[in-house]
Amino acid sequence: MRILFVCNEYPPNQYGGIGSFTKLIAEYLALNNFSVFVVGYADVKERKTEIINNVTILWIPRPVYGKSKFLNILKQLISRFIFYKIIRKEIKQREIQIIESYDYGGPLIFKPKNVKLVVRLHGSHTANNYFMNRRGSLLLRLLEKCAIKNADNIVGVSEHIVRLTKEAFKLEFQYERIYNGVDLELFSEIGIERDLNRLLLVGRMHPYKGFDRLFRCLNFLFALNKEVNLEVICTIVPEYKEFLMSLVDRNYHSRINFVGRVDNNELVQFYNKASLLVLPSVTEALAIIPLESMACGTPVIMTNGFTAPEIITDNIDGVLVDTADAIGFASRINDTLKFLKLSNKMRVNAKRKVKTKFEIGDIILQNMSFYKRVLND
């Protein structure tokens, strides 16, 4: 089978959840005798093709936008048309059978001919803004809606994101739900000693990720627990870091360590060293970070909403909490840290949950079966 993924954040370029997922599934499909191609924007000066782990990638120079709102709108439309022409050429040259794109930003708003188009719902701008009662970009709404409506088949990474997408765009469609998965050969317990007072925050500095919610609770948490400390793994945005630290009493600053971004091999070390991962996101389609952490035996305390109940059973393999309640959030973190010092039960349950529900081998088999059905329809 010959499949092409659209991905504008494919590693090693700057990437998020979509990039991580696409790389993981692309490389596993390549190992299973799929011919796999990726086309996407990157920080390059000219188009170039390279092969990484048996995946053929076409990098395209990323569009540059200016200050003029009108010109930026025009450029977004023109760039998508040019992108579509590149995709169409790749389909013909590579004899592509399936092309997979996604909802976020609507990268592919025209439907290529003679190929099956799959759109995976990772969480669009429109759906996330709808969930948070925010007014989003009308242009992005149009682009994302076009991207979804053009699909021959739709996959949702969670039941939550499917429901939310239908509501936000006022659409009805058939879909298949296939969760994101985690590589248990990479993310696992490695036998190093844990710091039972360490919290870990992993993600990116974006309003959706709710970093401010955690930092607002730290004054209460640090007052409750004199030993707890926080380690932050993310690409550091100096202005946002300064804002976050302004929310915390200066006397507590020494208990917060911003590490920066690390690769996955290092990340495994940080997951294993911590006692508890905190995920205060305001919205997520299906975050991979908590799955990675749970696979390493590090339970997660996360916002009780969006997809959280699809990942965690409260007080069994993790903790669900109202992260907008700073005092209550601090209290639940403190109670969970105390419990984890007394029992490994939650750690065992967290690992079991990932193995039975989110193991990448099983997820790849689900995707392979799905792609075969798509071709046979």
Rank of each mutant, 00 (worst) to 15 (best):
V268T: 05
Y240A: 03
N129R: 11
D317E: 00
E242F: 08
D335T: 08
N229A: 08
N265W: 05
I60V: 10
L365E: 13
L200K: 01
Q76G: 07
G328Y: 01
E144F: 08
F37I: 04
M346D: 01
P61L: 12
R332H: 09
L171G: 07
L77Y: 04
V64S: 08
G40Y: 01
N133R: 15
C234Y: 04
I25G: 01
A168Y: 03
F83Y: 06
T307L: 07
L142F: 10
L140M: 14
R198K: 13
R88F: 08
L286I: 02
F270L: 12
V237W: 02
F21N: 06
N219R: 09
M302F: 03
F169N: 07
N129F: 13
L337V: 09
F187N: 15
I288T: 06
I87K: 01
V259E: 03
F215I: 14
N53E: 05
E172V: 06
K85F: 13
L218E: 07
N315M: 12
F222P: 02
Q93P: 11
H206N: 11
I73S: 15
D183T: 09
F70P: 00
L340G: 08
F110H: 09
I60F: 06
K341T: 10
V319C: 07
Y208R: 12
E50F: 11
E310I: 00
D183H: 04
N114E: 04
V64Q: 07
R177A: 00
L247E: 01
S275R: 10
V38N: 07
D195P: 04
L221I: 11
V44I: 12
Y102M: 12
E90S: 11
I192A: 02
L164G: 02
V118F: 06
L218V: 12
F21K: 07
N32G: 05
R261Q: 12
L140V: 15
S293G: 05
M368I: 14
R332K: 09
G40H: 11
E185Q: 13
G123D: 03
E284I: 15
V348S: 07
Q97W: 12
K45Q: 08
S79D: 11
I87E: 04
R80M: 13
Y28R: 15
E167H: 01
D362L: 04
L214Q: 05
I52S: 06
N53R: 08
S281W: 02
A147E: 12
V268C: 05
E231I: 15
G210F: 05
L230E: 11
P107Q: 05
E90R: 08
G17C: 12
L31T: 05
I148D: 10
G40L: 00
N32W: 03
N180P: 02
L286S: 01
E176C: 14
